[in-house]
Design a binder for these strands. Structure first.
Lengths: 187, 187
DNA sequence: TTCATTTTTTAACATTTGTAAAAGGATTCA
DNA sequence: TGAATCCTTTTACAAATGTTAAAAAATGAA
């Protein structure tokens, strides 16, 4: 997915503002299994995914819990780093080789102060991420695991092909054994 | 809590910008049990809570699920209405008589286009709500009900006094019976 | 205060989910 | 191809949570 498409799907910028923003972005690429972000560090970059798929995970006691997947067109960001300048929850691991667009957040913060269109783009970006996060929270509070698995199957069938079930079970908040039982019942 | 304090705790505005924003805000008051927002409507106002406490709930089949509490200094908003102009999840019921600051969102949208400080205030507002939502999602995915109850007890002890346990159990995602068992174990 | 109502806890049993281990499939790479 | 590894399902049992009902405690109104 092209950077222009990713940026303008958030909020369409005037050409001059887009050019400013684009000049701060560079393309990078990393292999499968690469650890892009670490939970104990303050991340000063955000990434837009051109190709590939990633997962965010954190540790609870000794256990790894996967809590987010990102694919083409989505944004890899540690919200706590971005907003509060503190280490975030997420370790981000690449599940496939990825091509990414990289943007340094300090440059973005400068643009927010200078350009009202970019400030409003940043507002829309936060708002859209907020809606996504709220939807995940609501789904988790209101739906059973079976319902959320079915929704995932319907809305993102490619994820089931691209990601092993252990990670998906963790993401859904159950053990792999339990997810297996759910899959057996649906058939 | 005064409106100036609520607005500037999000992001400190220059005086002129604050005056502009404040001129769009009026004070209103409603009694306990009043239904301020309905889930099936598009809400065109947001409220800042001066005094009182409210809950957001939705229906899952026949059951009511409480998924948010708001108190002094917090913002009552239907994010889906505000951001996507669609009916949101939340019914908002007042659990105490409340004094509120009311702001029409269409006026706010106008100010976003005119004033870069207010645009950045709006960005910070969305970002802070995002952090809060993310924290709730992470807590839900990573902590047991007992841990989340203890955190609530520690961080918001007043809520346990002001809100009945049925609503709190629902908020924590368990039955009241189960919450009672948790409370019995902690003692 | 006293009675009625609401809230919270307790109990008994059913259901769901977790744990640990093993078996069955699928994939990779020499 | 074949052996090793990884992924997924199945089984048996344990632990946690839900359901329903009743008892106890707290609250509120006359």
């Amino acid at each position: 997915m092209q950077v222009q498409q990713i940026i303008n799907q958030i909020y369409t910028l005037p050409e001059a503002s887009f050019a400013q923003l684009k000049s701060c972005i560079k393309e990078v690429s990393f292999p499968k299994k690469y650890l892009l972000l670490r939970a104990d560090t303050i991340e000063r970059k955000i990434y837009f995914i051109k190709t590939g798929i990633v997962r965010a995970y954190a540790y609870q006691n000794e256990n790894e819990i996967t809590f987010w997947f990102g694919k083409e067109g989505e944004t890899i960001i540690s919200m706590k780093s971005y907003i509060m300048n503190q280490p975030g929850y997420e370790n981000i691991e690449l599940l496939e080789t990825c091509e990414l667009y990289e943007l340094k957040t300090d440059k973005l913060q400068e643009l927010f102060k200078q350009d009202i269109h970019i400030a409003n783009w940043g507002r829309k970006f936060a708002e859209q991420e907020l809606i996504k996060t709220e939807e995940r929270l609501i789904a988790r509070q209101f739906s059973t695991t079976a319902e959320r698995y079915s929704a995932l199957l319907k809305n993102h069938p490619d994820l089931l092909q691209r990601i092993s079930l252990g990670y998906i079970a963790s993401y859904l908040g159950v053990t792999q054994v339990s997810l297996s039982r759910i899959r057996a019942e649906i058939k």
